[in-house]
Write a protein that binds this DNA or RNA. Structure first.
Length: 878
DNA sequence: CTAGGGTTAG
């Protein structure tokens, strides 16, 4: 039979091995032998370790006169079995019964304290009973204050331990700083600790690694890593996990892989940390492969794993896998986890299934702020009104959850698309009320929303009112200006930004490139390019794409090509920019070749790519090819036809002379024909001499774009080329009646840092004499080469010789002549014009390009004309 | 017989 002495250790052993049946037999034996009271505390502890807190309580209740150890054991039993409220209750009862408060109960109850108030009460008690002197109690106080966001209080507890700190105290102090975003302080604590001769253990190491992650100090992290290896803690799971997490988050994914693969016993957390690192750095497919490996290694993915996996699915476009994960979550009853919810809302919305996203949201029982934000943030796919009602619902039923900057930014994003100024103003007021105007996301959203509502002034006011010394607000404002046709102001604002001493980043430079693109400001574009090179941003994908786009828009397809070749990775935006650029410059065939290369590389086109492709077909005269893409893009690529696609197709048919087919398409399209469509038809009817169609198109355009003078001119041109002079004079009359003023034609060339502007017959330029001498000289050579002025299209009411003289002094010719005399032989010439290039100048510049053996690039209001060796890239159609 | 410090996801 058992002796009394052996029973205590037996319970300890049963408790540790959680042999609840064997222990219960022993309990029964004690009952029979009347020995329960003698082993009451062993019993409580045993049941607690076996995760039977209720049984522990039952034993306790049978004790006639519990001692302070019994009370402490009960409190601990609750605490260790995740029943903090019961633990606190038991502690209160212990005090009420006058049991002595010992140094064991205090740390436990501190751990279970629901708030800092109770924590402070226990602190006071510890002071009264002098138990603060105990290092366990002091350490528990450090942890408690650290956990309730009071790192400075924690520090006081730590310092007041009066030299009695042990390793746990140091670790606790580091942890307190890490938890409260004071990672630099945590690192400092670690240094003090090492310096004072305390050897860090695995707890300290995992903590300090987290501090390195939090303060983004990879250098310190690597040093700590070396120390971890030297001291033999590299195999500790927690420490290794922290290292994997650190390398994952800080971009050294390969180092994360090394640590991860060296782990003898990687657990779920290790896998999660590494998989999440892959996702952070965009290796979504690798993440999904790891997920499979993890499963086959026998580990069960948890909610952390799956929420990360959902993000990988969203990034990789693996929507079916996402749905499978959703199914798995439902089966394992874990689908009400908010992290999973956010992942599902995200993936369904990216897959275009907003209804499913909504269902996921509705299913969640405890919706938190981030879930709300996720739903609001994903709903800008056309359901803008929906977002507003969601936002209102959120504010009404949002219980204790406060909306935050992400909410406002998401709402603003939707409102920006709604283009409803009153909503923007309301959110603006709310942002002011909440003191969120200083938040860059909110500010961004407001600027964005205001300019999209056509209130650029208010956008600028928001920008100015805030002490705008950060680069993000400058970026927003520069973007706004360049999108609202104020690209010059955008560039000026950038200069202001530089004067303030702000260092440009890739974002602002990308935005600036767009401004240069819309101005066709080649020289400025090149300057931005040098900024990118100087600051090592040249491998930035966004900036790289913008560079391709800008060079194409600035007339240098060669530079665009170089930028494109230099891109570190090519997304659909890169390919679309290059294909579109080639098309705009008349290299239709090259554009289509590039399109096929893009498909070969597995990149899926979007609707913008398809516009570029159609436009390339247009320029290469590939009518059948275009029809094929146009008819099958939905089936081939899942892309719906947009108004732009129709406009492009109509332009193409018109250009090919198939005016009837073009009209058929106009009548069958699911949109109201817009100005681009009628403009295309008007252009086609001019070239193919169809005055009847021209009249119809022009009448539509008079309504759609009454401010544009080009319509009248084109119509008159069409009549003129058909010899209908009465109609020509009618149009002229109409222009006078409607007070339509022909925008004065203007051309300009950039020369170093100066822009030289010319109007017809301009004599204001300092080198006027040289310019006209050059034109005379060219005129002789052109006549010899067979050039004859074409005065038909000129609408001026003057005689023929005067018309010829006017033609020969058109602004584009003055600009070309000036460029010829100011640049070295053979250099390409770039001229910009604010209207369409005139027919006669088009012929003339073709001759000039041949005579002077130069490439002359003219950007008119619609497109680029590359004149070379007597021909133009537009194929004489524009 | 009873106590304190460390890891992963939106």
């Amino acid at each position: 039979m058992r002796t009394s002495e052996s029973i205590g250790p037996l319970f300890a052993r049963y408790g540790l091995s959680r042999s609840v049946r064997t222990g219960a037999h022993l309990h029964a034996y004690l009952l029979k032998s009347g020995l329960v009271v003698a082993f009451r505390n062993h019993l409580i502890s045993f049941y607690s370790r076996c995760r039977y807190p209720r049984s522990a309580r039952a034993v306790f209740d049978e004790i006639p006169d519990p001692c302070h150890v019994s009370w402490s054991s009960l409190v601990t039993a609750y605490s260790n079995n995740a029943l903090p409220r019961e633990a606190v209750g038991a502690f209160r009862a212990m005090r009420a019964h006058g049991a002595r408060c010992n140094e064991f109960a205090l740390p436990v109850v501190l751990k279970c304290a629901p708030d800092a108030r109770l924590g402070a009460q226990v602190h006071a008690l510890a002071v009264c009973t002098a138990l603060v002197e105990d290092v366990f109690v002091a350490n528990a106080l450090v942890a408690m204050y650290g956990g309730f966001g009071m790192p400075d209080e924690a520090r006081r507890m730590f310092d007041e331990a009066g030299g009695g700190q042990n390793a746990v105290s140091w670790n606790g102090m580091m942890s307190a700083y890490v938890k409260n975003d004071r990672c630099e302080d945590a690192l400092e604590v670690f240094r003090e600790m090492v310096w004072s001769g305390v050897r860090p253990n695995e707890f300290g190491f995992s903590c300090v690694v987290n501090a390195c992650t939090g303060s983004r100090d990879l250098e310190a992290g690597r040093q700590v890593h070396a120390m971890v290896v030297r001291r033999g803690y590299a195999e500790d799971v927690f420490t290794a996990n922290a290292l994997v997490d650190m390398y994952s988050k800080m971009g050294d994914i390969e180092m994360a892989a090394v640590v991860f693969e060296k782990m003898p016993e990687a657990d779920v957390v290790s896998w999660n940390a590494f998989i999440s690192g892959c996702v952070i750095h965009g290796h979504d497919h690798r993440a999904l492969e790891l997920l499979l490996q993890m499963k086959s290694s026998g580990l069960v993915p948890n909610v952390h794993t799956l929420s990360t996996a959902l993000k990988a699915c969203a990034g990789a476009g693996a929507f079916d896998l996402g749905r499978q994960i959703h199914g798995f979550m439902i089966k394992s009853n874990a689908d009400s986890d908010n992290y999973i919810g956010v992942g599902l809302v995200d993936i369904y919305s990216k897959d275009g299934c907003l209804d499913d996203a909504r269902k996921v949201f509705d299913f969640m029982s405890q919706r938190d702020l981030i879930l709300w934000n996720a739903l609001i943030g994903c709903s800008h796919g056309g359901q803008y009104a929906e977002v507003l009602s969601l936002f209102c619902r959120m504010r009404n039923e949002g219980l204790a959850l406060d909306i935050n900057r992400t909410t406002l930014a998401a709402v603003l994003k939707s409102i920006a698309s709604l283009e409803a100024i009153c909503h923007t103003r309301q959110i603006h007021a709310l942002a002011v009320k909440m003191g969120l105007l200083s938040d860059s996301h909110v500010l961004n959203g407001l600027i964005d929303s205001y300019w999209k509502c056509d209130h650029l002034i208010e956008a600028y006011r928001v920008f100015q009112e805030r002490c705008s010394d950060d680069i993000i607000s400058f970026t927003s404002m520069i973007t706004a200006l360049s999108q609202c046709d104020h690209s010059e102001d955008a560039i000026k604002l950038f200069v202001q930004m530089l004067r303030k001493g702000l260092e440009p980043d890739p974002f602002v430079l990308s935005s600036l490139l767009n401004a240069c693109a819309s101005l066709s400001a080649f020289e400025q574009g090149k300057q931005v390019h040098t900024h990118l090179i100087k600051r090592w941003f040249i491998s930035d994908v966004f900036a790289g794409n913008a560079l391709v786009y800008t060079y194409a828009k600035c007339g240098s397809i060669e530079d665009a090509d170089i930028a494109f070749s230099g891109l570190p990775e090519r997304g659909v935006v890169s390919w679309s920019a290059m294909i579109g650029g080639l098309a705009q410059h008349g290299h239709g065939k090259r554009a289509l070749e590039l399109f096929h290369k893009m498909l070969d590389e597995g990149v899926s086109p979007n609707h913008i790519t398809m516009t570029s492709v159609l436009s390339a077909c247009n320029h290469a005269g590939l009518v059948d090819e275009a029809k094929r893409y146009f008819d099958s893009m939905k089936k081939m690529f899942g892309i719906d036809r947009t108004e732009e696609h129709y406009a492009c197709m109509i332009d193409l048919l018109g250009r090919a002379g198939k005016l009837e087919d073009a009209m058929k398409l106009v009548n069958s399209m699911p949109f109201q024909p817009n100005a681009a469509v009628w403009g295309a038809l008007l252009g086609a009817s001019r070239v193919h001499k169809d005055p009847e169609l021209a009249r119809m198109a022009a009448e539509k355009l008079f309504i759609l774009e009454p401010e544009k003078s080009g319509t009248h001119v084109l119509l008159a041109n069409t009549y003129a080329s058909a010899g209908m002079w009465d109609e020509v004079s009618n149009v002229r009359k109409l222009m006078k009646e409607n007070k339509v003023r022909k925008e004065p034609a203007m051309s300009w060339v950039e020369m170093k840092d100066k822009v030289h502007t010319f109007i017809v017959g301009d004599k204001s330029h300092p080198r006027t004499q040289d310019i006209y001498r050059k034109l005379d000289e060219l005129g002789d050579l052109m006549s010899k080469a067979g050039y004859a002025p074409n005065v038909e299209a000129d609408l001026h009411d003057v005689d023929r010789s005067e018309k010829e003289l006017l033609l020969s002094h058109h602004s584009e010719r003055l600009a070309v002549a000036f460029a010829l005399i100011s640049t070295p032989a053979g250099a390409p010439i770039r001229v910009k014009k604010n209207l369409r290039i005139c027919r006669d100048c088009h012929v003339a510049i073709k001759f000039i390009s041949q005579i002077v053996s130069r490439e002359i690039i003219v950007r008119d209001i619609n497109r680029f004309h590359h004149f070379k060796d007597g021909t133009c890239s537009c194929g004489d159609y524009w």
